[in-house]
């Protein structure tokens, strides 16, 4: 009994130590950025650098909030939410179709879908820019939402399809026997059961849209259309880097992702794992 307990205790301790080590490794740069964002200029340049500054200041946050960054954050939120809505709308229907229907070339279709997602974004930069220009969509939310959705839909179709396959098809059939149409069964029975999968997909899409840089830079030029990730780059100028403000802006840019993750964390973990146990 004692030996079993000791072995288990050692196992848990080891697991805890490894996980804590990895977590510290991942969190150290974030903590360092947080500390830098709270340092006055004099502290930032102190060598050797100090983990705990002698003086704390919120001046860097004030400067960021008084700049155009809040507008860039709003733009990023609009684009990210728009991308989630469009991507999920397309992907949930496509995912339902491939999870419920057998049709010729289904596997090839799914393979091609994923293959298209693997093409590096930069390869389509010029055609996308040309097309957006011809359609008069440059410098609009619409172009970014469309492009980001185009990139994320294949991945999300796969994610949702995996999840929907874990929802028994008999439920759809039962709903249809009760008088629902195919779409009615999907919307009223299958979709409510798929919330964890949708939440997981929403986080994946949000993080992508929030962090994307090259398309946002290329497809927008006007200041009032700039996204947060592009805005961050302005703190790195040819004359030097404004470390304090950059660190404050980075911390502020992490907040929305963090909030979304905290809110949807339970569903995110469930959504990602449930698809793996289908059948």
């Amino acid at each position: 009994m004692t030996i079993t307990f000791s072995v288990r205790w050692v196992k848990y301790s080891l697991t805890f130590l490894v996980l804590a080590g990895v977590a510290i490794l991942m969190l150290t740069p974030v903590v360092w950025i947080l500390v830098t964002s709270l340092k006055p200029e004099a502290e930032i340049y102190r060598f050797p650098p100090q983990w705990i500054p002698l003086q704390f200041t919120l001046d860097n946050y004030k400067a960021v909030l008084q700049s155009s960054m809040p507008m860039y954050f709003v733009n990023s939120i609009v684009v990210a939410v728009g991308t989630i809505v469009l991507t999920l709308f397309i992907a949930m229907h496509a995912g339902y179709a491939v999870s419920r229907f057998q049709f010729r070339g289904k596997n090839v279709f799914l393979f091609l879908l994923m293959a298209s997602h693997m093409m590096p974004g930069v390869a389509s930069l010029v055609p996308t820019y040309l097309l957006a220009g011809k359609l008069g969509l440059l410098d609009t939310y619409a172009v970014l939402i469309l492009v980001y959705s185009m990139w994320q839909t294949p991945l999300v179709v796969w994610l949702i399809q995996g999840f929907l396959e874990s929802v028994p098809a008999t439920l759809d059939q039962a709903a249809m026997i009760d008088g629902y149409s195919r779409l009615g069964a999907f919307y009223r029975v299958v979709l409510p059961l798929s919330k964890p999968g949708l939440a997981a997909s929403a986080i994946v899409v949000f993080v992508y849209a929030w962090n994307e840089f090259i398309m946002a830079l290329t497809l927008t030029s006007a200041d009032n259309m700039r996204l947060a990730q592009v805005g961050l780059k302005y703190y790195i100028s040819q004359y030097g880097i404004q470390w304090g403000e950059l660190a404050a802006a980075v911390i502020l840019s992490i907040v929305p992702v963090l909030i979304l993750f905290v809110l949807l964390q339970r569903w995110f973990v469930y959504g990602l794992t449930s698809g793996a146990l289908k059948g």
Binding site: V126, G133, S221, D223, K233, Y234, Q238
Partner: peptide, 21 residues
């Protein structure tokens, strides 16, 4: 004025010109 990060002006010029803009 349309403002870009200094290192991004040249790449953006290349992309825009490839599209005739």
């Amino acid at each position: 004025p349309e403002v870009f990060p200094w290192k991004e002006i040249s790449p953006k010029l290349i992309v825009a010109s490839s599209a005739g803009r």
